[in-house]
Every structure is written in C-alpha cells, then in structure tokens.
C-alpha cells in the first residue's frame, strides 16, 4: 500500500515538473531574455568591465563574485564536516592502508610518478595564475594540485608525502580562500564602492586597471590553494588507521 502511494506521489510530482519544464522557452533561442540582455552584455563588455579576457573567470569573480565567495564558504563547511566525522588526518606514519599494503608499487611506477608530479604542480600553478586570460582558474588549478598530491601518496607512500604537506601547512592554506575574498571585498568597501569591487583607495584612474588585475590574481591564488588543501585534507582523512578486522576487504 505504501509502495503504491509512493509511486503515485512520485508520478504526480514528475508530471508537474515535466509540465513546468515544457513551458520554458526553447534552449538557445535567440529571443530568450538571457540571449537578448545578459549574454551580449557579458560578451561585449566583459573584458573592459570585469578586467579579464576569460569571460568565464570574469563572470565567476566579478559579475557573480558573491556566488563564488559563498561556494568557497560551502567548501570550508564541507571540510569541517569531513573533519568532524573522519578526524583530521594526523595519522601516525606507517599505520595507513597504503603503508601496510601487501604489494608495493614497482620502481617504474615510482620513478614515473616522481617525474610527473613536478610537472603536474607546475601545470596547476600555470592554470591558476593564467586563470584570468586562458581557460582554467582557481578551482581547476586547485583540483590539479590535489590530484598531484594524491598520485604522490599512492605511489610513494603516505609518510613521504605527509612530510611535505603537514597539517600545520594545510590549516593555513585552507583558510586563505575565504580570507582572500573577504580582504579584497573589504578593500573595495574602503575605497568607496560596493563589497568585492576590485578597486584600491587613493590611486588615480589609470592605475585602477593594474590594481584590478592584481586583486583578481590574489583571489584566484586564494581559491586555488584552498581547493588544493581541502582535497588533500579530505584524502588524508580517508586514509586513517587500518581496522582490526581487515582480512576480507571489499572488492
């Protein structure tokens, strides 16, 4: 009986949602309000108003900068939740799954990872710093930093990698994201405009473009290191000590 009621309810909800979706204008139509007002404005006046050649980064950081700030705050909250459930990842060296594994990575894989990780870190730094002009940005570069640390942990062991990224360093980096946004936003208020307007107080108009580019890069770096530190911390928290009843691990 409950099952029939559940199916009826879900079908009614599905029918309502499908009807509402059918009333929307067709996607990509030239008469849509977004294609008439919003998209031409962003595409035509994006580089001069937002200060970036990458329109996506301009929308993320300038036109919709408050949403990006809230997203970074959500990342911090998710990290707090992971720490509450799984612990901070300050495990003793030698007591994780990876260090106690029965099969170690071969020498070929280890040398390949050692060579690759340096290139991955360089590439992610480039993606973060050129986020305002080339495709990429803070989120992509930060995720690449996290991926590089993960590969290094898997192939080279938890001890060697955790020595490079200890908890003290991660704790500082995880707070720089939201702090960068708030500091840059408050500087915008101090210089007389709204919150998160990329202007500096007390300089003339010609130098404002340079100030805006600098503040955009500061925000990008903050986002990048924060996302990298969060990914690393969650990964280290997932690698806690081996359980006692560890014989039949799931496939």
């Amino acid at each position: 009986m409950k099952r029939v009621l559940a199916i009826l309810f879900v079908s009614a909800l599905a029918a309502l949602l499908l009807y509402a979706a059918a009333l929307l204008p067709p996607m990509g139509d030239a008469d849509n309000p977004t294609n008439q007002h919003i998209a031409p404005r962003y595409l035509e006046r994006g580089p001069e108003e937002a200060g970036t050649h990458n329109i996506v980064a301009g929308v993320l950081l300038n036109y919709r900068g408050y949403d990006t700030m809230a997203e970074v705050a959500v990342l911090s909250a998710a990290l707090a939740g992971v720490f509450a459930v799984l612990g901070k990842g300050r495990t003793r060296i030698g007591s994780t799954f990876i260090d106690g594994a029965r099969v170690e990575f071969s020498i070929v894989s280890r040398i390949a990872v050692i060579l690759l990780v340096s290139f991955i870190m360089l590439l992610s730094i480039q993606v973060i710093l050129q986020g305002t002009n080339l495709p990429g940005g803070g989120f992509q570069g930060g995720a690449a930093i996290g991926a590089g640390v993960m590969i290094s942990t898997l192939a080279l062991g938890f001890g060697r990698t955790q020595h490079r990224v200890p908890y003290s360093l991660r704790a500082i980096l995880e707070s720089t994201g939201i702090l960068a946004f708030f500091v840059v936003g408050t500087i915008g208020v101090v210089s007389g405009a709204n919150f998160l307007t990329y202007t500096l107080p007390g300089i003339n108009e010609q130098a404002q473009a340079i100030a805006r580019t600098t503040m955009l890069i500061v925000v990008e770096i903050g986002i990048g290191v924060m996302v990298g530190a969060v990914a690393t911390s969650v990964f280290f928290a997932l690698l806690r000590e081996k359980e006692a009843h560890d014989v039949d691990r799931a496939a």
Binding site: N54, V56, A57, F97, V127, P135, G136, G137, F139, Q140, A143, A144, G146, A147, M150, L154, A231, V234, F235, L238, L239, E243, H245, D248, R249, A250, A251
Partner: peptide, 29 residues
C-alpha cells in the same frame, strides 16, 4: 567549453574517483 572540461576531468575523474575507492576500501562485503 575548456574550463568545464578541465574541471570535470580533474575534479570528477581523479578526485572523487579516488575518494570513492578509498571509501570502498574501508568497507567489507
């Protein structure tokens, strides 16, 4: 959309895959 391609491949293909495998590793069947 190269921004989306970068974000998708790195964040979903590498990071959440590793998280999932690390979580599955701790369970039993």
């Amino acid at each position: 959309a190269p921004d989306l391609a970068l974000a998708e491949v790195v964040a979903i293909g590498v990071i959440t895959t590793t998280f999932f495998i690390a979580s599955i590793f701790r369970t039993q069947r």
